[in-house]
Simulated scan of single mutants.
Amino acid sequence: MTESLKPKKKTKAQLEQMVKANGGRIFQTHAATPNTMCVADKRVVKVASLQKSGMKDIIHPSWLFDCIRQNGIDAGKAKLILPFEPGHMFFATEETKHEIVRNVDRYADSYARDVGVQELLRIIDHIPTKRDCKVDAHVFREQLHQDSQELGELPGWIFSGSTIYMDLSSLTERSGLGSGGRSQEKAESFDLRLRLAANIVRFAGGMIEENLQARGITHVVIGDDSSRVKRVREQLEWRQVLPRVVTVEWVELSWAEKTLLDEEREFLGPSTFRGRNRS
């Protein structure tokens, strides 16, 4: 009914010749035979009139190109006409609309034909990269615990139930610990290892607390500067329940071993505060 605009620009006469070359027949009216397929890429008067009647589907010429291309890919196999897809339709009747959605997946990827690289890239571009997740991970974890699922045995949950404070230089002033004489360059070096450890903790089900005075902290992780231990312990002595003070190595080795290692025996030993041992 009209010329082709995409994927290839061809005149109406060229499209007709292409159809004939591939075994098709050409009619100049939509009512010539019962199964006449109407092909158009532009809303000229004749096309608009047919669309307004709502009696016939109008197909983009891209369907012709897809049929010919797929026939070449399937050389030696039975020759079949491709089913219509939503992207093939210039106009679709209500009946056809219900049928064509079954010919593609939810991302408009065809079930019946091989898509090219460029089309596949367009499909991927329209796939949502983020989804709203309404599942609360902590609620889900508690539900699994109630069902007697041993999450602690899974590597991705080894820090579950742990709330950890990292002795980052950016947090020391806020926590009343001071810089301990560390230069900015040294502080950044120490912090890098601690930040990586914090990512491990979060990934493996733990929580990171940035306020040393907050209640509920179970561990305080010291970086490579062991001189920080005394300062940290002085800030914690007021607590009834004392967090364990460990080195960053405890996080790293626990993750490497896929199990929570013994803090007191293998790292900084018992947390002692003015003669009072941590229970």
Rank of each mutant, 00 (worst) to 15 (best):
T172Y: 04
N199L: 06
E188I: 05
R182E: 02
Q184W: 02
A198T: 06
L144W: 01
S160H: 15
D136C: 14
L177F: 01
K130A: 12
N199A: 07
S160N: 13
L171C: 10
R102Q: 10
L194S: 00
A112G: 06
D114F: 14
V117N: 09
H219Y: 06
S179R: 09
L194F: 02
T129Q: 15
V220R: 03
I127A: 09
A187H: 01
S148Q: 14
Q213I: 07
S183R: 01
G181F: 00
F203D: 15
S148E: 13
D191Q: 03
I200W: 04
G216T: 07
D105G: 05
R131F: 13
G206M: 03
S160P: 08
R141G: 04
L177C: 05
D147Q: 13
G205E: 01
T218V: 05
R122C: 15
F140E: 11
F140N: 08
S189I: 06
H219T: 05
G206L: 03
L192A: 10
L194T: 00
N211V: 07
R182H: 02
K130I: 10
E210G: 03
Q118A: 12
L168H: 02
D136M: 10
I123C: 02
D125M: 15
I164V: 15
E188D: 15
V104Y: 03
N211S: 14
C133Y: 06
I127Y: 04
R141W: 02
H219C: 08
D105K: 07
G176C: 02
S162W: 07
N211Y: 01
L151F: 03
I164C: 11
